[in-house]
Amino acid sequence: MSTMLIAVILLTLLALFFGVLLGFAALKFKVEGNPIVDELEAILPQTQCGQCGYPGCRPYAEAIANGDKVNKCPPGGTATMEKLASLMGVEPEPLNAEAQSQVKKVAYIREDECIGCTKCIQACPVDAIIGAGKLMHTVLTADCTGCDLCVEPCPVDCIDMIPVGQNLKNWNWRLNAIPVTLIQETPHEEKRG
């Protein structure tokens, strides 16, 4: 009888001890926010373009963490979508055709047409446009994310999105590769027919 009692008491004490330990740990090592959001955000291209329907990359990362689709980021392309899908453990979904053929672009202001309205400066999410009221504006191409957000507000349509050209820095050796064409094998049945 006493052995049983001892066992019960011992187990109760143990349970209490570990309960307190776990409770303490839960408070001490509490994680603020959802850590998956940070990981998702690190994958996103940070263009802050809003093409996903959210005001910036972090809101979209939060939305994905809450179960939104992973194929809403055209600037990131298929590679980003695949990374997001693997991180979230969901099936990769194809981007729309338009987004897939996206090339990196940067904004260019035709400076002699700029009236200095500062609307594009206000629209730029990364402060990559410099200029002042009634003075010409220009784009810091190194900082431009190519998000297109400055094109819409321009009252004189002097902003172009220009694809980033090849230079010695970003040249890809693959460009010299001989293009391989795939020849479709025609089935024998059709030949006979």
């Binding site: 955000e41 996103l44 291209p45 940070q46 263009t47 802050q48 910036g56 990359c57 999410p125 990364v126 402060d127 990559a128 900082d143 994310t145 970003n170 040249w171 890809n172 050796w173 693959r174």
Partner: peptide
């Protein structure tokens, strides 16, 4: 070159985030 490009993009994304 692909890795370098990816690294550049990542770097630029970080910059963009900081600027944003």
């Amino acid at each position: 070159s692909a890795l370098k490009q990816a690294a550049d993009e990542k770097h630029q994304a970080e910059r963009a985030k900081l600027r944003f």
